Simulated scan of single mutants.
Amino acid sequence: MPYPIYQLDAFTDQLFSGNPAAVMPLQEDLPDDILLALAAENNLSETAFITPLPADQDADFSIRWFTPATEVPLCGHATLASAWVIFNLLEWPEDSVSFQSKSGRLGVSKGADGWLTLDFPNLPYQEQPTPQAIRDALADAPEQAWFVPSDTNYMIVLADEAAVKAAEPDLRTLKTLGNQGLIITAPGQDCDFVSRYFAPGAGVDEDPVTGSIHSVLVPYWAEKLGKNRLDARQVSRRGGTLRCELKGNRVAIAGQAVLFMEGTVELP
């Protein structure tokens, strides 16, 4: 049976940059083992599966995200890519769409300039001593870190953008943490802050651009910089740009996306 599939580059307006994501619209749910096998076959940091919901539900679609190794509770770039597909390829009549997810209800709205804005949760985090595995994996890791209980990420703050770009953590050591991943961040030179994200615990060595980590980065930097609107760059090799705003218990994360490929998947 054929299923449509789309691959997009998210948080960019140019092909071969940003973060690639696969999007598969379904008419009904497939078994979890099939979803994971599809994500592993795609071999991208995330594949999103979207399914329309009945009219009496409080969201338009359900959405689930899988890395090649596991399901994750929240993903920004694949949600952005999913919304782009809905707005541009599925004849969606509205300028907003909502998703039911493991992290609650999420929204995406389309701006007049073509940017898409994610309505994501403001994720709480806890300051604690940096785990020894992180200090072993990254020589200049600071003594204090922040832990995000909802997704098990750790975040550390480095001195400057150059330190973030130069970081080469030992991924095997990071994987021994048994969590999802490590966010590293610092003030930016030409933007408010920069970041990179390593998620060997979820089967992704380095994620090129990660919308979901901005649910932590934005409230952290909003407090540090004393401003609610922030421009961000994820300074991986591919790189990506995000416009962000702290809105109380929600975080607005805006970006662009471009279509790379479309086709069909044949399942028995």
Rank of each mutant, 00 (worst) to 15 (best):
P129G: 06
P129L: 08
P129C: 06
T130L: 04
P131M: 12
A133W: 03
I134M: 04
I134C: 05
R135I: 09
A137F: 00
A137V: 03
A137W: 00
A139H: 09
A139R: 07
A139T: 11
A141P: 07
P142M: 06
E143N: 06
A145K: 02
F147A: 07
F147Q: 06
S150W: 01
N153Y: 15
Y154V: 03
Y154E: 08
V157D: 02
L158W: 01
L158F: 01
D160V: 00
A163K: 05
V164F: 01
A166K: 07
A167H: 08
E168H: 14
P169H: 09
D170H: 11
D170A: 14
R172P: 00
R172V: 12
R172S: 11
T173A: 14
L174R: 04
L174V: 11
K175Y: 11
G181Y: 08
L182N: 03
L182Q: 03
L182T: 03
I184N: 09
I184V: 15
T185V: 06
A186W: 01
A186L: 04
A186P: 01
Q189K: 13
D190N: 15
D190V: 13
C191H: 09
C191K: 09
D192I: 11
F193W: 12
F193E: 08
V194F: 06
V194Y: 02
V194N: 02
S195M: 11
S195P: 12
S195Q: 12
F198H: 04
A199G: 13
A199F: 06
